[in-house]
Design a protein around this nucleic acid. Structure first.
Lengths: 218, 218
DNA sequence: TAGATTGTTAATCGATTAACAATC
DNA sequence: TAGATTGTTAATCGATTAACAATC
């Protein structure tokens, strides 16, 4: 399984393949060709075959792909067969919402701790996990084999908290704070910048309306 | 201002420019060159100049860019000078968290309504907005000039709700449901698939660990 | 075997980077 | 004016699509 330098473009498409294959499996579909899948997903069959071949030949000429086995293979590639413990730093609305999201557990992500600097939130329970004061964080990470931290705090504190996380052995940060974190290259960061996403939507609404206006003017 | 066919790659970078320029402005910086900005943002100066020139010549040879004016221009391009009313469909944890997020208002996005099919949630208040039953949705959209719907419901109901939204004049959907919506091309959709994002993170943790293992073996 | 469909190479397309003339 | 830095064209790089031989 040669996995040298696979582009993030390809990686970014894997979860979507995984999702469609999971649905096909649930519907009891046994095999699928790149052609059929491409029609469902509205991408080219060529791209599907290219993408999958980065990870090995999962298909069979003249037959296509076995849904169940391809689903499992992609799950493995994504590391969903492994278990990861995560903590949530920041017990505000978003942090609590993510803590309550049970589907992450199904994929091997176990919610083990939650932290906040606000004393009013400390002691609160989210799905059986008690919010602890920030001072407890370092020790907790080390003692509980935590490898992912979900960062749901305001941007002002984010950079400093990230440093503390990294110093104590966190491997990855799922960053909802609205800043770009500056961490060593061996730390994985995945940004979810909600307001960036909303701005893109705003741009596209705008652009569409302008196009319509221009059309009606000409 | 020629805005014909600007790629989503470029659009996707605009919010980040906007963010950095806003910070520079808050720090009282008056002018900046593409070179300086490129070092801050860790992109090439060439890319910055290319990107900005899609929308017009905002800079000045020998001087650079005026921070304040560039900030405002990008804001306009993103449509942040306009006001949009949005509703949240699905008053679960995530929906309520987004409703409580006040920063959207600063960008011209006004939280006006919230809907849920669960009678236990109806009547609940989120930042002054009362959760209403789903039956009220159609009328509310029409009567309140709503153009964006935030979809925070489980994937099973999403497609049908999207149809109802579109039929009643919604222009854009910010989709947090874990499905790809099938809407007419004049409806803007921006997907936030949180579990996809988490899977990417998982892949990258995994890949890094495997690389380390391979190194130690050779 | 014949038909179907993959795996993979080659061609195309688009996005990023480099270079430099234009100009403030 | 001389120096700096943009706007823009050209070169490069990478990603997507097309094509087809390999093979089940």
């Amino acid at each position: 399984m040669e996995e040298k330098g696979i582009s993030q473009a390809v990686i970014g498409r894997l979860p979507r393949y995984f999702r469609y294959l999971g649905e096909l499996r649930d519907r009891g579909v046994e095999r699928i060709s790149s052609q059929e899948l491409s029609e469902m997903m509205k991408v080219t069959a060529s791209q599907i075959r290219q993408d999958l071949n980065h990870f090995g030949g999962f298909g069979q000429q003249g037959y296509g792909y076995n849904v169940e086995s391809l689903y499992r293979e992609i799950g493995k590639i994504l590391g969903l067969d492994k278990t990861h413990h995560f903590i949530i730093v920041g017990a505000g609305n978003l942090g609590r919402a993510l803590g309550n999201y049970i589907n992450f557990e199904r994929r091997g992500f176990i919610f083990t701790g939650m932290f906040d600097q606000n004393p009013d939130l400390v002691g609160m329970e989210v799905r059986g996990v008690k919010v602890q004061p920030m001072e407890n964080m370092e020790r907790f990470i080390r003692e509980n084999d935590v490898d992912i931290a979900v960062l749901t705090i305001p941007k002002t504190g984010a950079e400093k908290v990230a440093e503390r996380l990294v110093r104590n052995g966190i491997k990855a940060i799922w960053n909802f704070a609205h800043v770009d974190l500056n961490v060593p290259p061996d730390i994985q960061v995945e940004n979810v910048h909600l307001s960036d996403s909303l701005m893109k939507l705003s741009y596209n609404i705008n652009r569409y309306q302008q196009e319509q206006k221009e059309k009606s003017e000409n």
